[in-house]
Write a protein that binds this DNA or RNA. Structure first.
Length: 261
DNA sequence: ATGCCAGGTAACACCTGA
């Protein structure tokens, strides 16, 4: 059986995280990685270091903020940056490409949306509507599609250590959750949940207040699969190892495994 | 009610994040 692992990881600056990322690529050996918050322009991405250990690289970067990338052991083809639907949107939050000749993958850095009484929240909701429309179009194709990233949505109360503390947070507003559910209702499968329905699985722990040590986290990084990809899903999980290391990102990788036979 | 921590930029302080 030929399987590949596809992971998503918000690295919170690729330059600050390069040694962590290189070490994890060597040890976990994912076939495809969707990165978010690279926080650098394309020219500053440490492309050679990552190519040296066997990955092809595609980036859609931005100075200081945001920025997404795709790494793959296969060639990366038909790269497309930016989410359609708003030509005035300058934030680098979306990159998609074809890997292994037949899988359309997207690296998604969905807007945080806080605070909810500022323009950032309607920007988040509008961005989610654009993503829904784009997903719906992609699903008219019969190719495998994998939409992975930092969705900045806590889908359920049991996906956060203390839901009351986040009652006013954009990550779990009813409107944010409804739009996430709408994506699932298009026919997408949550790769983690297909194998792990249990509550209190987290992909993010704040740097502050000992959140990691107390396991006070959030589940906000998700991988959504088209039916053709879901049919080939053989496993999924969260690799908490990188979060416990020195100079860690506040997020840890979420991954899924697909059978390509 | 606020800051806690971390990264980037720029400049010795402030913005953003979730």
């Amino acid at each position: 059986m030929t399987t590949i692992k596809i992971a998503t990881w918000n690295v919170n600056s690729i330059k600050a995280r390069l040694q962590n990322v290189l070490g994890w690529l060597r040890s976990f050996s994912p076939d495809v990685v969707l990165l978010q918050e690279i926080k650098c322009v394309d020219e500053a991405f440490p492309r050679l270091e990552i190519e040296d250990i066997g990955y092809n690289v595609a980036t859609h970067g931005q100075k200081t903020y945001n920025g997404v990338a795709i790494l793959s052991k296969s060639p990366i083809e038909d790269v497309a940056a930016r989410l359609p639907g708003d030509d005035t949107d300058e934030q680098a939050r979306y990159l998609e490409a074809t890997v292994f000749g037949k899988i359309r993958v997207a690296s998604i850095y969905l807007p945080n949306g806080n605070p909810i009484d500022a323009p950032k929240f309607p920007y988040k909701l509008a961005w989610m509507e654009r993503l829904e429309r784009h997903m719906a179009r992609a699903l008219t194709s019969d190719e495998m599609a994998v939409f992975g990233g930092d969705y900045n949505v806590i889908p359920r109360d049991s996906d956060v250590y203390e839901p009351r503390a986040f009652a006013e947070d954009a990550l779990m507003q009813p409107e944010s959750r409804a739009r996430f559910r709408t994506m699932l209702h298009l026919g997408l499968t949550d790769a983690l949940r297909a194998f792990h329905p249990e509550p209190h699985l987290y992909s993010y722990w704040d740097y502050q207040a000992g959140a990691w040590q107390k396991d006070q986290g959030l589940l906000i990084d998700h991988i959504l699969l088209s039916p053709q990809a879901a049919d080939r899903l053989t496993g999924s999980g969260i690799d908490k190892t990188p979060r416990g290391q020195e100079k860690a990102s506040d997020h840890t990788p979420v991954w899924c495994e697909l059978n390509l036979d």
